[in-house]
């Protein structure tokens, strides 16, 4: 079943067209990655889905419900959560307080249960629950940002550049946590500049260039695509010709 459908979405910033006629879909329990270079419109797409920016045209359908114009706080109630680019944890609040703020819309009775679930996946957050979030390392902050999104019990988790500014080993760690979450039945849609990491773990991928989707397919097929190898995986034509 298609959980999220984006139908011919347009986003403009003043006269600049950031997204031109984007259509995509995400099935339940899928792990989908959208890759693209700097300025391709990745963040704009997530922001438009979440309601942080208003699309000029097009529709966002979630579980057969048209949620196009909803502001972010209503999207959270519809069980969509977004992990923002650059993590954006509340640096002067403690780790636990960050998670509590994430649970703003949810019932109190589930909180303890959810918190235990989150601490099981991210034990480091339990150890550091009384520290200000600003004191965590980049990888830990990313875990916290994911935890803050997860505490609202989303059905769909959107992520913006989870690998940004992280060391390769930490990136691997973050993606492996995402695989664990996928096992628990979570649907994940992430946008990523780091195509190699994203396509390694995702089931399916889209490629965004200059605000348009230029390619889509299974992750494995995309990893084999010559154009992607050249543009995103750092392999030159020359190297390929020689082979």
């Amino acid at each position: 079943m298609k959980m999220l459908k984006v139908k011919s979405l347009f986003v403009n910033y003043g006269a600049v067209e950031a997204l031109k006629n984007i259509s995509l879909h995400i099935k339940e329990k899928e792990f989908v990655a959208l890759i693209g270079s700097n300025g391709a419109g990745k963040t704009s797409l997530l922001n438009a889905i979440m309601g942080i920016v208003k699309p000029k045209d097009g529709e966002v359908i979630f579980n057969d419900k048209n949620i196009t114009g909803f502001p972010p706080e209503r999207k959270v109630k519809e069980k969509i959560a977004l992990v923002l680019e650059g993590r954006r944890v509340f640096a002067n609040m403690t780790v636990l307080e960050n998670i509590e703020v994430g649970a703003f819309t949810s019932d109190n009775k589930n909180f303890i249960k959810r918190l235990k679930f989150i601490y099981d996946i991210f034990p480091v957050l339990k150890e550091r629950s009384w520290q200000p979030a600003g004191m965590l390392s980049g990888g830990e902050q990313q875990m916290l940002a994911i935890a803050r999104a997860l505490i609202s019990e989303p059905k769909l988790l959107l992520m913006d550049e989870p690998s940004m500014g992280l060391a390769p080993l930490v990136i691997k760690d973050v993606y492996e946590k995402l695989l664990i979450l996928k096992e628990t039945g979570l649907t994940i849609f992430l946008v990523e500049q780091n195509a190699a990491a994203a396509l390694k773990y995702a089931d399916r991928g889209y490629v965004l260039e200059n605000g348009k989707i230029v390619l889509q397919g299974k992750s494995k097929e995309l990893l084999e695509d010559n154009e992607i190898k050249r543009a995103y995986l750092g392999k030159e034509y020359k190297e390929k010709w020689e082979r």
């Binding site: 502001p71 972010p72 706080e73 959560a81 640096a91 002067n92 609040m93 703003f104 609202s152």
Partner: peptide
């Protein structure tokens, strides 16, 4: 309190607070 924490979250980062479900 929950609402007090929401206030502080808004102070720190309005967009992050809104994606936590807070009506900024």
């Amino acid at each position: 309190t929950k609402y007090g924490k929401a206030f502080r979250a808004c102070y720190e980062d309005k967009i992050a607070a809104s994606v936590c479900g807070i009506n900024v």
